[in-house]
Design a binder for these strands. Sequence first.
RNA 1: UGCCUUGUAGUAUAAUGGUAGUACGACAGAUUCUGGCUCUGUAUGUCAGGGUUCGAAUCCUUGCAAGGCAACCA
Length: 558
Amino acid sequence: MSEEVKKEERSLNFLEEIIEEDLKNGRYKSIVTRFPPEPNGYLHMGHATSICLNFGLSKKYGGYTNLRFDDTNPTTEEIEYVESIKDDIRWLGFEWKNEHYASDYFDQLYEYAVTLIKKGLAYVDDSTSEEIAAMKGTPTEPGKNSPYRDRSVEENLNLFERMKSGEFPDGTHTLRAKIDMAHTNMLMRDPVLYRIKHAHHHQTGDKWCIYPMYDFAHGQSDSIEQVTHSICTLEFVPHRELYDWLIEKLEIYPSHQYEFARRNLSYTVMSKRKLLQLVTERHVAGWDDPRMPTISAMRRRGYTPDSIREFCDRVGIAKRENLTDVGLLEFCVREHLNKIALRRMVVFDPLKVVITNYTAGEETVVSENNPEDPDGGSREIPFSNELYIEREDFMENPPKKFFRLAPGKMVRLKSAYIVQCNEVIKDMEGNITELRCTYIPESRSHNDTSGINVKGTLHWVSVKHAATAEVRLYDRLFKVEDPGSEEGDFKDYINPESLQVVKAVYAEPSLKSAKFDERYQFLRKGYFTLDKDSSASGMVFNRTVTLKDSWKPLASKG
RNA sequence: UGCCUUGUAGUAUAAUGGUAGUACGACAGAUUCUGGCUCUGUAUGUCAGGGUUCGAAUCCUUGCAAGGCAACCA
């Protein structure tokens, strides 16, 4: 209820304002958006923003969203990416209305080109790409007309037909729009519409040897699908003039393009080129290496789709350049995981504790699965006189506000007893090897009559019941906020400690039945999920994100 | 030395001529059988100058800064 109110009161972003205005004055009855990935790479956090935006808008305003693959360049695109892209969108929790390919429209697009030629608005140019570039001018100087610019309609029609039929080799001819070589917008200086590529296409096979350029495919595809709001990133702002020009000259359904600023995240890179470099140069293990900002990597790392959607929602959209603090993403991940993760105790760096006055041998204690979830149930944990605690939870000479174990001090062992440290055992080099403690029998959890209050509560596992597992601790991939803007190569700023592997941690036995779709909070350590590298011979857990740590005296965790 | 975008706390985003808000982060405190969660509080902002107006983050103007534009990529 209160959440409803909150949502209604939330102010609109500039696209929502435009849409509400369009709806209000009857320009559209409902809206159609599209998500138009090029199948030449994996989806990343930037795409997630666009997905949440496009699908979110159509959902909010009662329309629908198409998935359309922008597959106009067969030499760089592959079918493999089509499937991964669809998986990622579904995983994020969205469903498209229609699945389209720009290549579905190649016949129609060809007809549009013919229309333009007939109107005297397009011509076949025999210039090489170098010549075209040379004649283009510069942002401050006008370009020059191509010598082929004034061919007759008949000649253009004939040549374009022969381009299509495969008569010419790659690069010998292009179809160009006839606009204005002195235009202040470089994109309006007779942009190339079609080029010859004798290449096999993953959707159309060998049917075509000419392929439309982005500008002659995207807007037209939007129009064919009657997309009302075609939302893209800021770098396409100059393309809008051409987008509108083509729609106007072709006299087709007037889709409109709107641009927002792409989402940049701190401590990572987002460009396909850089991401590819990280993979091919083996700085990461692959596209789904949990340190990558790709959707598949975030999924593997244990991020939930809910948390990514929440992040996109909170961060909002606008038109200015931004570098969003990855801390906000981490906050959203923690916020969701806190609600759903099962609590488990796992000791990473064991220090043995012997409870000298515990004579029962062993017993079972009960602990809640999730204090945030009253219906989460509980589990049983074996307790015995030989335990492991975290080595960093003991200090021989503790500073003032150290709430953990120290000689003579007492702590609560989570869901079990209060213990007091009586003796510190060391080896010949002076390393602490074992702690001798006594427990307070009346302090048993849920039934504590001891009257003793302790400040610290530690996680622990019983030595002889412990299960072992490998744990992979991930941190930010880069040491600096914006690797792309630093001096030199962005790869110089890779965080050498972005992955730390702990080969054997000691886990409470209930984790032996850990499942892949389950999220865990290892008490006081962070959120974890089972990695796909797990096998019968051993479990591997990924740390999704740490717990927030506000302990200052010792901690220097960022 | 052209054209197009954009400038609001550290970050992101509101305020659409009428009290500069919110979230994350930071800091301080309360609570706690997780130094988590939760709760309370504090600090920090309109790029700059000029103009219009009773009143300007908002309108005008001049600067400044950042980003984009010269692929047969998308």
